[in-house]
């Protein structure tokens, strides 16, 4: 479904250029569950941003379903994000003034879905993440785990084919984190392609494939069984930060 060919992403800072991604070539099959691991600054988040069409590679080709992303204009990219891609963030990024339902409806609102259909679909999404009784609650009235479940409901409200999660359990306790991971596994089993960036070996072990990154390159492709707790790459660090 996704093909990356020799992707480079270079940031120029003063007279220095920094290669956040170097010669990344990778294929993601439809329905796959892939974890991307690596130390802070290894390029995991940059790779995720490029997969989510929030960022464009400096060099190289990205094909989504055979369409070259490079040739799409900003509106077509927005359209692609709206219809095909769902995002889940470590910081949830719910709009604080909107209740759970309105947050879930947001992508459908952008898509121009009629009000009635929106609220029906939002209710169904909310129930599918087990929060049917929290429809009118604002983010401030929800626990971290509940917030992330609302965020997942929002991400799947447009029935995307690709779900991108950046440290989805990073701000959660173990129990809530497991609930979130179970939800994501369930969605993956229903056929959604899942890419998760994580520091947490527990999260990585749930994937079918694990990409280990270092200095902007994919240095290892391993299976979930090979992920070890002792792996020095699992140091703690801030997520979503640019190198």
């Amino acid at each position: 479904m996704i093909r990356l060919e020799d992707i480079w992403r270079t940031f120029v800072m003063g007279d220095q250029s920094l290669h956040a991604l170097q010669a990344v070539t990778e294929t993601f099959a439809a329905g796959e569950h892939v974890a991307i691991i690596g130390p802070s600054g290894s390029g995991k988040s940059t790779l995720l941003n490029i997969l989510g069409c929030l960022d464009k590679p400096t060099r190289g080709q990205y094909f989504f379903d055979g369409r070259a992303i490079e040739s799409l204009d900003p509106d077509e990219l927005a359209q692609l994000r709206l219809n095909e891609i769902g995002f889940i963030f470590q910081a949830f990024h719910l709009v604080p003034r909107l209740d759970a339902t309105a947050n879930i409806e947001l992508p459908m609102t952008l898509a121009g879905v009629a009000r009635k259909e929106r609220s029906e679909r939002a209710r169904a999404a909310l129930e599918s993440v087990g929060l049917g009784d929290r429809a009118g609650h604002r983010p401030a009235e929800l626990s971290g785990g509940q917030k992330q479940r609302v965020a997942i409901a929002r991400a799947i409200s447009m029935q995307p084919r690709l779900l991108l999660a950046d440290e989805p359990t990073g701000n959660l306790d173990t129990h809530s984190g497991e609930q979130i991971l179970d939800l994501l596994d369930g969605l993956n089993q229903e056929g959604i392609t899942l890419a998760v960036v994580t520091h947490d070996p527990e999260v990585a072990r749930r994937a079918q494939r694990v990409l280990e990154m270092r200095d902007g390159e994919i240095v290892r492709r391993i299976s979930a069984d090979e992920v070890s707790d002792a792996n020095p790459i699992f140091d703690r660090g801030r997520v979503g930060k640019r190198p």
């Binding site: 929030l54 900003p74 509106d75 927005a78 359209q79 995002f87 990024h93 952008l110």
Partner: peptide, 16 residues
């Protein structure tokens, strides 16, 4: 800013 970033991430166009 975060809200704007989110809107863009989930598919809002510049125009929207």
């Amino acid at each position: 800013r975060a809200e704007i970033g989110l809107l863009k991430a989930i598919g809002a166009t510049h125009r929207q």
